[in-house]
Nucleic acid binder design. Structure first.
Lengths: 126, 126
DNA sequence: TAAGTGTACTATTATTGTTAATACAGTTAA
DNA sequence: TTAACTGTATTAACAATAATAGTACACTTA
């Protein structure tokens, strides 16, 4: 389910966070679906449970999952856990990256097209 | 010219890279303009010259500046140093971030508007 | 009770960021 | 040529972070 690059300079837990976010946003992982447990996933990926826990904690902070002691960790429904602060942060990051894209010579129309694509495949699954 | 947050968890050299990129892309720093020297900027910011050098090396790697031994470091003209690899990388990052923005409920129209704004202020200065 | 879950803590190692000091090579002007 | 500036490289030391390891505790469920 997850492919990790142990040699990468990007920390393992960050790789995990990114992949999870991707799977959740693409609805591969459905709302309220249970995620593999900390120990189970650690064993499957042959890494330390603490690293998984760190990734889960970060995902919970970012509002993508919720964890219940004794039960497990679950995908947060889309409309939950969306604070204004997180939205502002994403907007700022996006502005920087869009400026860089334009600076690199990527046509504005290509960017508009990208948004249309992503927006179209958003609600409708694939 | 530069404000640093020494307490931030973001490395100093990364903060420098980001600010420099911003100044270059907004044409506050003009093409072929000479940047402050490694030692000079280090003294001004009261940080170590090695940290400046690390930032400059990264900026050169990313194609934003060029350095000449014995002469100094200079802003790379817009049409130089834009390899396809860098463009692909930015596109991938952008796709991730745009997906997250839409997932967070930011309207597609707001994103289109952001692009139009940035694109308009691109060539025309301010 | 037993086995699963998340969570917390301490300790250890490896990697990275930062500083420090020094040195070398190229440029430029006196 | 000399002096003072440039970028660049290297080594050492320290702090912070990433990751592993081991253990423990609290909660849930069958």
């Amino acid at each position: 389910m997850f492919e990790l690059d142990l040699r990468s300079r990007k920390p393992i837990y960050e790789q995990l966070v990114d992949k999870m976010k991707e799977l959740i946003m693409n609805e591969v992982l459905k709302p309220d679906e249970q995620l593999p447990s900390v120990r189970q996933l650690a064993q499957q990926l042959t890494i330390n449970p603490n690293t998984i826990q760190k990734a889960y904690r970060e995902l919970e902070l970012q509002g993508f999952i919720y964890s219940l002691k004794g039960k497990g960790s679950f995908v947060n429904p889309m409309d939950a856990g969306k604070d204004a602060e997180k939205i502002m942060q994403v907007k700022l990051e996006l502005e920087k990256l869009l400026l860089e894209a334009l600076y690199l010579g990527i046509p504005a129309e290509e960017l508009h097209g990208l948004i249309r694509e992503l927006d179209a495949s958003k609600g409708g699954g694939e």
